[in-house]
Write a protein that binds this DNA or RNA. Structure first.
Lengths: 218, 218, 218, 218
DNA sequence: GATGAATGAGCTTTCATTCAT
DNA sequence: AATGAATGAAAGCTCATTCAT
């Protein structure tokens, strides 16, 4: 009974190794979120993780690799969730609502993750652009495909450039989050849930129905 | 006779001072665009400006002040342009088209400026948030006011949160630009003009009319 | 019964211990030869030996002790060989030829040993000079005694400072080897044997007969 | 009168720069001689030179460049002196005496220089072998040419490999010096001058006349 | 004996900033 | 105003060594 936890073909040793690795990654996310990538010292990360300084270098080649790892591991989780939504069998509108909710929800649950993904990684990307560009690109490919399918099914207007629309959708969501992250908006913390629900609804409403009241052009 | 050069109530000395100051600012923009704020050394800026690097400290207290100055001086130009558009007497739709065109056009004319404003300043803002937050906030205030006026005039639907809509509009535009800046999109340089025209039209189309084809909910 | 394997007055345990110890020493010689003492990490040595690097510290107090051990164990083999030659009952000339051949031959058989003894140890000797100085000094004592005996037997000229002559002989040989080690000379590998034979002959010829053609001063 | 020192077309500024540069180089030589290249910290050099350690990096790219500079600048002085002797119009014997005296004298005047050139540079040469190999090689080319000319003029025996002889001569001298540097020989300091005179005479005597008493082989 | 995770002192190097000229 | 030499704090990274298992 008490031994059934490490069940899935993973030795205790490698689980330990992964635990410590994740300990560092999680600490790094918190520190990056607090101080920014450039402002964070490796010693800050080690201190936050409660380990010796040098140990960080057992698990990661250097500071940059920590950021890249955070990106690729955490971002791929996000991408996979988006792909899951894109492949589900609901209306395009539902899919967009789900994606908006996913993005906004993620920020509520793991504000540090989103903070680092949104604020640090893109901007530090100069350092090692290739992989990250590809990862980020994948998100937009998925989004564009989703919209194109919506066009084929008559749910989305023809004549809309799906790539530009993807950028608008994601970029819009991103800035909404950024505004929260940077505290431009002075929303009371306890209102968070309401805020995000309202926002998710509004975002998709705007994207589907537009801002205008005038007749749809024919 | 020899004093008739500095004509407009400004001593020759201070005009020279401003020239050199701008020389440094322009150089800094180019260097920040190329290397990023953290990657740029003060000596890089001085070198780009063709001056000794000690001289930078005659004109600016430190490296950060250069970035802040770029931000406040260049950004305020942008804000003023946006305010001008907002106060003009055209339809809300026209105003949005103008603002989108302004943003996209700015990137075509001064890619370095936009690169620095978009990629560097927000991310470095941790350093000196107060002034910049207020400046950035002003943009969204203007945008929100513009949309609210559109609502009052019946051009924009009621029930739309003007603040969220502002974020979506600006955020969407920003990501379109970011995509270009980071070269995620592989657009041939010669297609730039067409690209931006098409994009400006598309962006406002989406924002006004939405993506959907179904009937407007009543 | 089960104890009859370690036959020669040595427990199986300690023989194993010595085997592993030598495994490390041999690996260290190869690594030091390749990377130099300072360039070699303890982990490099362990890796070359195929063991965990913590284990190195079971056999040696620290990195320096490895070098010292290599020196004292390998060098004493060399010294003993030289002493054997010095005590043999042949002419001084024959002895010098044998020693030259020994030195040059050693380099052909164990280039790594010689590389480390010649290039690394003297230079790192600052660290623990005492023992090594005594060991190295012993070589010159043996050489000097050999030459003095040659003088007493009328084979070597009187008036030659035997100590200086020893330095010349050994130093000359050392540089010949160093030249090979550092690849200053571009000799084809397959010519090695010929090269060393020629060199051994030449060296002793020069030392016994001198470079000059003029009459011996009387 | 008092201004005639900076005579040869060199601005005071660049003289100053060179002065400081040489200050660092001289300090580095002393520190390398004391602690060895690997044992010397850049801060030790700066401290010895009486400057801030960041300044070292204004004049040299890194620690290694300091060593390389010492080598190339000091060694070339030595090489030029040797070439001057080689090209003088005296007997080969006289030339060898002069070179031996030069080498031994150099060590008496600048023991630190020789210590660093002899003990540190060859051994650290792994780091940047190319240039140094060429420089060192030049010495042996000069020596070999000198000996070959001696052979053509009948002063040196035919049948002697001039390259091997060069190695013997230089290598012998080097070990004599090394012995002094490492204090293997316990010579009283006040005997230095006599010691070196005796040694220089002995060295050339051995090289020209050989150790043996027996008849020259015919 | 054997392993390699863990430690942390210590190094080189960078670069914003100051200051003498 | 202009220069660039000088400063030194601060950071990333290495690696010999220890230690729990």
């Amino acid at each position: 009974m008490k031994d059934d936890l490490p069940a899935l073909g993973e030795s205790g040793e490698s689980r330990l190794r992964r635990d410590k690795r994740n300990l560092i990654l999680d600490a790094a996310i918190r520190v990056f979120a607090r101080l920014g990538y450039h402002g964070a010292r490796v010693s800050d990360i080690a201190c936050e993780a409660g380990i010796a300084y040098g140990l960080v270098y057992h698990y990661f080649k250097n500071k940059e690799e920590i950021l890249n790892t955070i990106f690729s591991e955490r971002w791929s989780l996000f991408i996979e969730a988006v792909e899951g939504i894109a492949e589900s069998s609901t209306s395009t509108r539902e899919k967009l609502v789900s994606i908006a909710a996913l993005v906004l929800h993620a920020h509520r649950l793991r504000p540090d993750w989103v903070k680092v993904l949104v604020l640090e990684i893109q901007r530090t990307s100069r350092i090692s652009e290739l992989n990250q560009m590809r990862s980020v690109g994948r998100l937009f490919q998925v989004m564009a495909k989703l919209l194109e399918q919506g066009q084929r099914e008559g749910e989305i207007r023809e004549g809309i450039d799906s790539e530009v629309a993807s950028f608008l959708f994601i970029g819009g969501l991103e800035l909404v989050i950024t505004a929260r992250v940077l505290n431009v908006l002075q929303v009371e913390p306890e209102d968070d849930q309401d805020y995000y629900q309202k926002v998710a609804k509004t975002v998709v409403d705007i994207f589907i129905n537009g801002l205008g009241v005038e007749e749809r052009p024919t």
